[in-house]
Amino acid sequence: MIEVSHLTKRYRDRVAVDDLSFTVQKGEVIGFLGPNGAGKSTTMRVLTGFIPATSGTAKVAGFDVFEEPLEVKRRVGYLPEYPPVYADMTPRAYLAFCAGLKKLPRPGVKAEIDRVAQLARIEDVLDRVTGNLSKGFRQRVGLAQALLGDPEVLILDEPTVGLDPLQIREVRELVKTLAGKHTLILSTHILSEVAMTCQKVLVIHEGKLVDFDTLDGLIAKHLPGRRVTLDDIAFLEEIYSKLVLPGGLQAASPVAPTSAASAATGGR
């Protein structure tokens, strides 16, 4: 469904994404991991046709992002890193506007807005002015926008940032229900989220792919002989720090106490 090959993105002299290649099958849910500045958002912007690649290609649903941007954009729902909402509009007007941009059939727009509002849990704020909403609600309005028209591919850049723990759990449930029929890429810094929702994990560091595998594959590769269950989040943090820190496991050990905390907030 998504094919990225030798993708490089350079901002003047800074290389944000460096020769990145990966393939995502239809129906997969991919967790996109990497430290700050790793190039996650940049990759997503290229995939959605917002910025061009310096070299390499990206294909979504068989269409080249650069050659046939409209075909790609029609099939992708995108939640950018900063929710693209208008402070002066109500979420209802905003979603109607987005439905127009996405050229959804007019008669169904009302029902579609209600549907995504319910999924993103913003029914109660639909008629308030977006500028007065809290950050979490603005994030959810952005999420509702991405879900409009039920696109086959969803690219969500840190969808749970700013949400309360219960809402994070709801988004997680939402992602699970979308899995299978939709192809999802979501970036996050919350490792428990990846363990609970994603089938595969893609770790990038300084623009380069460091690993791309299923959770089981990662465990077998990086923690050989360890028995872990998916309720145990600590293992992912160990793997993650192995991949992105030069120190490897030594540097990873002090992280362990925090992992218990993040598992607790995970609310599972």
């Binding site: 954009k73 995108y78 950018p80 900063y82 693209p84 909402v85 402070a87 941009l101």
Partner: peptide, 14 residues
């Protein structure tokens, strides 16, 4: 400025 340009540019409009 408000970064909503990203929404317009990633929507299926010319």
């Amino acid at each position: 400025r408000a970064r909503t340009f990203e929404l317009l540019m990633t929507s299926p409009v010319r």
